[in-house]
Design a protein around this nucleic acid. Structure first.
Lengths: 137, 137
DNA sequence: ATACACCCTGTACCTTAGTACAGGGTCAAG
DNA sequence: CTTGACCCTGTACTAAGGTACAGGGTGTAT
């Protein structure tokens, strides 16, 4: 199996066939070669590419940002300095996301710690009370 | 001011009027009593309720999850442990994301370093594999 | 040669979390 | 008693990220 049909790729990458065609339209994956009869022929690299897209999405990147990430490389139209500049901007993005998530985690941890008596009814749940009264840092 | 109009509530809770009506349609806030002329009359509790929704959203809960949290509160068969379990699941979620982002940051940092040494990657996308194994090709 | 699974394009539709009117009624100040 | 700020319902729209056909062609096993 040296190349994959769109259906095989979809199963490998755990996405819908339509999603792959959608990514192609959005320019996130290159247009693959076609067979005589017009079927798309994917290489195994495409699996990794789609999995990257899915993972980056879970991390809060939009498809636009992901295509920026994927195009971080030198080519005739992109200089090394340009790649570096954009990579640095992405690092700042990523750092911001990490910070936001760390704050989220701290707040959630504080909430969980408030639950001393698990059998308390939810009507007296300190987690819910704290979310409501705005005393969470 | 013993009750609030929708506009007053919106200002207090720092949301749009339309958002409040949207939350009502979604069942996130109860239908308030009306004046003779049909105006919604909110109690001050509604401010807390909307702040709860907003706060939980910031912590990564979707509106669907938030309405589950809210219905846990009025269900006499659930305990605080149920609430805690949901918060803990969110924490695990957030932790995973932080880890993946840290890998991505490392990959981007490596990429920047490669640019500095004039070893810019020129062909395949250099960060593609980072979310899988944290290395650069 | 006939199912049946698969592929193609194109267009329409869905979800989430709201926003934005249109077309009308209400309330308080001047 | 009019003006302006507010409220009502209902519908339509937004952006992002898909999903779901319809109507047709292809590939292969029996």
């Amino acid at each position: 199996m040296e190349s994959l049909t769109i259906g095989q790729l979809a199963r490998q990458a755990l996405v819908n066939i339509e999603t792959i065609r959608y990514y192609e339209r959005r320019g996130l994956i290159p247009e693959p070669p076609r067979t005589e009869s017009g079927y798309r022929q994917y290489s195994w690299d495409a699996v990794a590419r789609i999995r990257f897209i899915k993972r980056a999405q879970e991390l809060g990147f939009s498809l636009r940002e992901i295509s920026e990430l994927l195009s971080l490389r030198v080519d005739p139209n992109t200089t090394c300095a340009d790649v570096k500049k954009r990579a640095e901007a992405k690092i700042a993005d990523v750092e911001q996301k990490i910070e936001a998530l760390q704050k989220m985690k701290e707040a959630l941890t504080t909430l969980v710690a408030m639950c001393q008596r698990e059998q308390a009814p939810t009507s007296a749940c300190p987690i819910l009370e704290t979310l409501e009264d705005g005393t969470l840092p």
